[in-house]
């Protein structure tokens, strides 16, 4: 029983992080139809920025805010420089370019900071362990969950109540009509990238806060996993992305925890089998409506 509960705690932690990344994917996808392979690497950018800022003795809270802003700026710049000229050039072009951006970000951080792992030392408060019955849970666990919940609420508010949110939903529902209505598509795209990258930045920071060490490649695999989560839940849907993230995290954790080691080492294979299965049975994901672009 203890084992079971411990696994649930772990799954919630992992699911929250996946959710933050997956939601970012979904937002960018619903506006641009772009799967940004470099999305995961934005996490890495945020963590390195935070690490540099903390080494400059900037207070933690301020450093986090600055790191998120730096990441947003970088995401918006890459959109402007690399993606915008290609918007009408077809899907493959965008996939290839986003892969190139991903490699570029990784290689630059490798050139600047080196390949080796670094440690992010968040204030002691976050790493404190709390004893609840038989379990020790770090404060960071609660922070991760809280960040995810707050982000989703803020995001829902932006989408429902603000002008830019309205424009985003309009483009998502009917891109052509949105153009006719005179919606400023460029501004919406910038907003989508900004929001998506901010979420990725928060995911990166909380993730590294929990797991401490980070390196230039940290974001890529997480990005792929989060993409799978977004597809499972339904690309383009925010609730879907969150749901997919938790489904994936629970499956992964319980798969590794409850199966004998000889099978559990095929965890990666299993994740992709789920993806293929979902695409076969429900191509639009668990909560997806018919994908806008086809």
């Amino acid at each position: 029983m203890n084992f079971f509960i411990a696994e649930i705690i772990n799954a919630i932690k992992l699911g929250s992080i996946y959710a933050l990344i997956a939601i970012g994917y979904s937002i960018v996808y619903s506006i641009l139809g772009l799967i940004n392979f470099a999305h995961g690497d934005l996490m890495m950018v945020a963590v390195y920025s935070l690490w540099v800022l903390m080494n400059l003795k900037i207070p933690f809270a301020l450093a986090v805010i600055l790191a998120v802003i730096i990441t947003m700026l970088l995401a918006i710049i890459t959109e402007r420089v690399a993606y915008r000229p290609l918007l009408n050039n077809g899907e493959e072009t965008l996939i290839i370019t986003s892969l190139a951006v991903s490699i570029l970000l990784q290689s630059i951080s490798q050139a600047v900071f080196g390949i080796d792992n670094k440690a992010l030392k968040v204030p002691v408060f976050f790493t404190k362990r709390i004893q609840i019955a038989d379990f020790t849970v770090s404060v960071m666990n609660f922070v991760i969950l809280a960040v995810t919940i707050v982000s989703v609420i803020v995001l829902a508010f932006i989408l429902k109540k603000t002008r830019i949110g309205l424009a985003m939903r309009a483009i998502k529902d009917n891109s052509l009509a949105a153009d006719f209505m005179g919606i400023n598509r460029k501004a919406v795209i910038v907003a989508a990238f900004g929001i998506g990258s901010a979420l990725a930045a928060l995911a990166g920071i909380t993730y590294t806060g929990e797991y401490v060490s980070f390196d230039p490649q940290m974001g890529f695999m997480l990005g792929i996993k989060a993409f799978i989560a977004a597809v499972i839940g339904g690309l383009g849907s925010i609730t879907g992305a969150a749901l997919g993230a938790f489904v994936l995290a629970f499956l992964e954790i319980f798969f590794a925890g409850y199966l004998p080691d000889s099978i559990a080492s095929y965890q990666t294979v299993f994740v992709f089998l789920i993806l293929i299965l979902v695409l076969l049975v429900r191509p639009d994901g668990l909560l997806g409506k018919n994908a806008k672009r086809s």
């Binding site: 411990a6 696994e7 772990n10 797991y211 890529f220 695999m221 996993k225 954790i253 080492s265």
Partner: peptide, 17 residues
């Protein structure tokens, strides 16, 4: 013995449990 592969693997909770 529990095993892990290094492919972006940072969560050791299964082996810990």
């Amino acid at each position: 013995e529990s095993t892990y592969d290094d492919n972006g693997y940072t969560d050791f909770s299964a082996s810990i449990q």
